[in-house]
Design a binder for these strands. Structure first.
Lengths: 329, 329
DNA sequence: CTGAAAGCGCTTACAG
DNA sequence: CTGAAAGCGCTTACAG
């Protein structure tokens, strides 16, 4: 492999000068610079990032920790992050926790040992150990999706998004609205969205029957199963609308409803959240919320870049959303 | 940051010994080992990978070059790769070419400068410069999706998959089969799949009218537009079935057909390739081919790991596929 | 079983 | 404007 020493020799200067020329740091005569660049060109020399990083303590790499690689939401966020980061010459080191909380913590440490300059965490839960691990790691960490105390966080406005959706259903004349949520360990998706649903029902003077409320696990299948259970539990007292906290669960529920001969939205209105590609192409198309995930990713990358430059950034950013009205309501 | 020197001091041994203990290389007395491990535990010490990599020339990182982060196919492959790699303690450095051929080449060099131990390339095209860049880079490269001469390649069996699909349509009694492909610069998706379609039509004594053949760009929208054009071009001579080389284009085409009041499959049968999540939930559900992308990713990672251990691996691997018959035919 | 020393490829005060 | 030297944090022959 060609190293800076080879370049120095060929250009007949010291490696100090080569380094200066390459990094535009300090003075280098036009003559020397030209010779150096020519050699660099010819040899296709690329500085060893390991050596550079060892010396400078910066790597040009940002670590990403995400819950599941194969979900549309994560992918969009990562695409957004990457787009922004690539502009600044940064690369992404990717880790996937497979929803394992311990791995989340392990990966923070691991990424540090790999000298990443910062970490973006697509958070799915909030717990003490996680917060502690982030504090200990001493490198900039930015969370997306959950508000982590003491950590700059980019959050979706889950409460108002869910509130808008619930209100919309109610305004359409529904009084019996079912709900499929997820575990409360996920404060944003499991907590806030359900809270908004309950608040808005109550504020409209509507009662929430607990038989209408189910808990899925994000999967399409769980939406299917929960819809089935809800219908079974509420025989003779069935809901006329369903709010599922993710598109995938909404689509699972629609599958079951269609199998059972329900017409959507006539017999049962359905809404989800996420604006997945699928939501547009199922029949009927699904009313949902677009969280602009790619924008969130870009914003996160941008904020992190600012933080790396030691600029002050706020602790909490709330992202915007958009309700997409389609044919399932 | 704690370094190996700190550990050595605290454990009252030399850093040589610490290194040996940590890497299980060479002899270390049980006593010393215990003291070292205790300190490591307490301090949460993690060796600097930059230093390690500078010294050993290995980084424990595999670079991935992919055409588009936000496609289901890529994501599944990456998830498979990651799953396999994580087991061996490897991480992924991700780069996205955004379908730019020059970036593909640049990233190969860049990944080398970052000391990745190997590269997995999700290839979308084949050209001289790319092959040359791979040769020059001197680190193991593995291609998925295209057969790159001289580069170990994992390929889907595009020809037979497309042939099976065409035959199936023909067996259902269709004689007028339309086709939406992509650019031939992508030999696998653009070349092989179309070739199989034409071969099978011919072998069945059926004619391919050029007005039935369109070229999209992988997007849903292009499927929609191409279907529109095909129908316009072939007025009075319309096809009764469509083979789109990707699910997304098939789904776009279905959208247009539904808008125009065509019944699927009665008025027009439609098939795609890819087994996207969407394909299962559109109405009617789409007949397609499952390429087992996650398995492909795992296999690729596995082969690359073997190559890193200097085992011999074959030049070309052909992957299996499965035809999923659903309701669109 | 253990340690001193060299060296991986860079950058950065420092001196000129 | 330029270069010699030190040092980043590791590993690995080598010698004992």
């Amino acid at each position: 492999m060609t190293t800076i020493n080879d370049i120095a020799k060929l250009a007949e200067v010291s490696r100090t000068t080569v380094s200066r020329a390459l990094n535009n740091s300090g003075y280098v005569s036009e003559d020397a610079r030209k010779r150096i660049m020519k050699i660099v060109e010819e040899t296709g020399y690329m500085p060893s990032q390991s050596a550079k990083s060892l010396r400078t303590k910066r790597s040009g790499v940002i670590g990403i920790i995400l819950p599941r690689l194969s979900t549309e939401t994560s992918t969009r966020v990562v695409a957004g992050i990457n787009e922004e980061l690539a502009k600044e010459g940064f690369q992404i080191l990717l880790t996937d926790t497979e929803l394992d909380k311990q791995k989340e913590i392990d990966y923070i440490r691991l990424l540090k040992s790999r000298h990443v300059d910062g970490i973006i965490l697509l958070a799915t839960n909030v717990n003490e150990q996680l917060i502690k691990a982030i504090k200990d790691v001493e490198i900039p960490v930015l969370a997306i999706g959950q508000e982590l105390p003491g950590v700059p966080s980019l959050v979706y406005d889950d409460y108002h998004a869910a509130a808008d959706l619930t209100n919309m259903i109610i305004q359409k004349g529904h009084e019996r609205v079912a709900f499929i949520g997820v575990t409360k360990e996920d404060p944003s998706v499991g907590g806030l969205r359900e809270q908004a649903y309950r608040d808005k029902m109550e504020q409209s003077g509507l009662e929430v029957q607990e038989s209408w409320v189910g808990e899925g696990d994000f999967s399409i299948e769980s939406g299917y199963e929960q819809m089935k259970s809800i219908l079974k539990r509420s025989k003779g007292n069935e809901p006329t609308a369903l709010f599922a906290v993710t598109d995938r669960m909404a689509i699972g529920a629609m599958e079951y409803l269609k199998e059972q001969g329900y017409r959507i939205p006539e017999d049962m209105a359905v809404v989800g959240i996420g604006a997945s590609a699928m939501s547009k192409y199922v029949t009927p198309s699904l009313t949902t919320i677009d969280y602009h995930n790619a924008e969130a990713g870009k914003k996160a990358a941008h904020l992190l870049m600012r933080k790396l430059k030691n600029e002050k950034i706020e602790e909490k950013f709330e992202l915007t959303y958009r309700l997409i009205s389609r044919n399932s309501v």
